[in-house]
C-alpha cells in the first residue's frame, strides 16, 4: 500500500513557466526511490510539493490517502515528513545536538531525555559525542549532512525526502550516506525519496522516477 501518492501533479512558476505537468507517482514504505532528471526538470520542486512547502497548481498529493491540501501542513512537516535539504538548512548558531532537539521539540515528541535520544540518533549516522556538541559551522560538509539526516530522523517520520544528499560529499562519504538510507528503509520501514543526479545513488534505489524538462 502506498504511503504517498501523486496524482496528475502540475506546477508552474509565476503561473507562466510550467515546471511539472501531469506527474503521477506512488511511494511505499520500506523502499528507496530516486527521482532523476536534468537540471530544471523540476526535481527539487517536486520535493517541495511532497514536503508541503508549496502546493501544486494541478492535481493532488495524498499522504496515507489524505489530501495534504486539506491537512495542517506544519503538522505534516513536523511529524510525518523529514526533509534533508541540499544545503542542509541547519541553524548555525546551534550545535549539532541542539539542531536535532529543536526538530523533536517542534514535533512535540514526549521523551524524557531528549538530549540522550538526539545523541543516539547522531551516533546512528556516525557522528560521535564530541562532534555532536560542535557548532554547525565547525563541522565538515559530510558531518553537516549527517546532522541534517539525524534531524530528519529524530521525530521518526514515515517519509524521508533528501535533495541531492551526496552532492557535496566525496565518494566514501556518499557510500556511507547511501548505506544509512538503505538501513532506514530496510530496518525501520521508512519511505526514502531521493532527488539526485548521481547514477550511484539511482542504482542503489528500489525504483527510479525520471522527470523530463517541459
Amino acid at each position: 500500500m502506498s504511503v504517498l501518492k501523486l496524482e496528475n501533479i502540475g506546477y508552474s512558476y509565476d503561473k507562466k513557466t510550467k515546471v511539472l505537468s501531469d506527474v503521477s507517482y506512488e511511494f511505499e514504505k520500506g523502499k528507496i526511490y530516486a527521482i532523476v532528471g536534468k537540471s530544471g526538470a523540476g526535481k527539487t520542486t517536486l520535493l517541495s510539493l511532497i514536503s508541503g512547502l508549496t502546493s501544486p497548481h494541478d492535481g493532488k498529493i495524498y499522504f496515507e490517502d489524505k489530501d495534504i491540501a486539506k491537512i495542517d501542513k506544519y503538522n505534516y512537516r513536523s511529524k510525518f515528513v523529514g526533509v534533508i535539504f541540499q544545503s542542509f538548512n541547519l541553524l548555525p548558531h546551534l550545535n549539532a545536538v541542539e539542531n536535532v532537539i529543536l526538530s523533536m521539540d517542534v514535533a512535540k515528541m514526549k521523551i524524557k531525555n531528549k538530549r540522550e535520544y538526539a545523541l543516539d540518533i547522531l551516533k546512528k549516522v556516525d557522528l560521535d559525542g564530541e562532534k555532536a556538541k560542535r557548532r554547525i559551522l565547525k563541522l565538515s560538509g559530510g558531518e553537516q549532512q549527517r546532522v541534517a539526516i539525524a534531524r530528519a530522523l529524530s521525530y521518526n517520520p514515515d517519509i524521508i525526502l533528501a535533495d541531492e544528499p551526496t552532492g557535496n560529499l566525496d565518494g566514501v562519504t556518499s557510500e556511507e550516506v547511501i548505506s544509512i538510507f538503505r538501513r532506514l528503509a530496510n530496518e525501520e520501514d521508512k519511505c526514502i525519496i531521493i532527488v539526485t543526479h548521481s547514477p550511484e545513488v539511482a542504482k542503489a534505489a528500489d525504483a527510479v522516477y525520471e522527470l523530463t524538462a517541459i
Binding site: Y74, Y76, L91, S103, V106
Partner: peptide
C-alpha cells in the same frame, strides 16, 4: 533564515 528553517521543519 532562522524563520525559514523553523517554519520548514514545521514550526508554525
Amino acid at each position: 533564515f532562522e524563520v525559514g528553517v523553523l517554519t520548514a521543519i514545521g514550526m508554525k
